[in-house]
Nucleic acid binder design. Structure first.
Lengths: 191, 191
DNA sequence: GAAATCCTTTTACAAATGTTAAAAAGTTAT
DNA sequence: ATAACTTTTTAACATTTGTAAAAGGATTTC
């Protein structure tokens, strides 16, 4: 097996065990690309229907609103991600994804994804479970933003992303929490 | 066909056209229940793995935190909903759903749902697409909470749920926006 | 139709967060 | 080691939002 896509396949099988046929057809489709720290992996406003998998590195989903940057998700190694609106609705992406560290990324073109979904029940099942994780995470974050104040959100961040704290800057953390950098600095200093 | 589940079936086929076999097996499983205004449809802390469909009426997802109620979704007629954490992860629900008006609800037990998923590719495909909608909606709301202030969120609410405005109280609207009732009243009066 | 109840608005004050600017600390490149 | 640059902290002030209490409207119940 192509060494570069082993982790990808493992992550897929972790959600739904693929049939042999599905596995070999999937392996033929998966591509690999490397990004340098600071590179844009996909861009707001453009269509991007790939299913991405971070083999190594760290990335963020972000977008700009009135000149400020907002982040709503970090992705570390061994995680899938997509440009949600593009992927689900075939619309221009409403956010960009940027490599916060050098990244090695596996990806699957949408046409291949859709074909595998239609052809192999086991792959469609993976797709459903992957999307479930996307929904669960978004809802959890949504709840956090609804009922927690800035301090509460920071604590939630530490609990869920604590292991990434050293790899994420204060500015990016603040943009993720939806508060100003200054406010986050104040919160930190009170501890 | 059982008249009570026609809309349910139509909504399913709208996402993925079911095979004949899948359709007839689905129809055997769908149940119907009526709720009065104020009734709890499923409760925080309890397992609830049903897939619900509102045939008529209006409902809200809500939960309490430190004595205050927070709402993160309204559901009107012709919409599916689930207790996300229960449905996806087999955990106790982390929110309740309550009928804001008298409701007629169709629902599918999880075991039937899962069996239909495994047995019929066309139903698994429906499941994937349904979950995609859940994810898309959650992410859209998440973005709104991240970058909009109270006024901006209210405007977004009017745009997306404007047609429901007369059916939703100010208190529930405020709980949905994550702001106090007083603050919402202030915003309204400025218009 | 009066009383009771619920929902919305208003007021006054307190607390949290934002904005701007500047200083301090930390990093990187030469 | 120094300079240039980036990130984080601190300070001062403005604005937004929250809280609590009271008043005003609307609706329901008897």
């Amino acid at each position: 097996m192509n060494e570069e896509v082993g982790d990808f396949l493992k992550a897929v099988n972790n959600l739904s065990v693929l049939s042999e046929q599905a596995t070999s057809e999937l392996l033929e489709c998966v591509r690999t690309k490397k990004y340098m720290k600071g590179d844009v992996i996909h861009e707001e406003g453009k269509l991007c229907r790939n299913l991405f998998f971070i083999k190594t590195g760290l990335a963020k989903h972000f977008y700009y609103h009135k000149g400020s940057q907002f982040i709503f998700r970090f992705f570390e190694e061994d995680h899938f991600f997509i440009a949600t609106d593009s992927f689900f609705k075939n619309l221009p992406a409403d956010y960009s994804t940027l490599a916060l560290e050098d990244c090695t990324i596996n990806y699957l073109l949408y046409d291949d994804f859709e074909r595998l979904c239609n052809k192999y029940h086991s792959f469609e099942s993976f797709a459903r479970k992957f999307v479930s994780v996307v929904a669960s995470t978004a809802i959890s974050n949504l709840k956090g933003l609804l009922y927690l104040d800035a301090t509460g959100r920071y604590n939630k961040f530490l609990k869920e992303y604590g292991h990434l704290q050293q790899r994420i800057s204060l500015g990016d953390t603040a943009a993720f929490l939806g508060i100003s950098q200054v406010s986050l600095s104040r919160i930190r200093s009170k501890k």
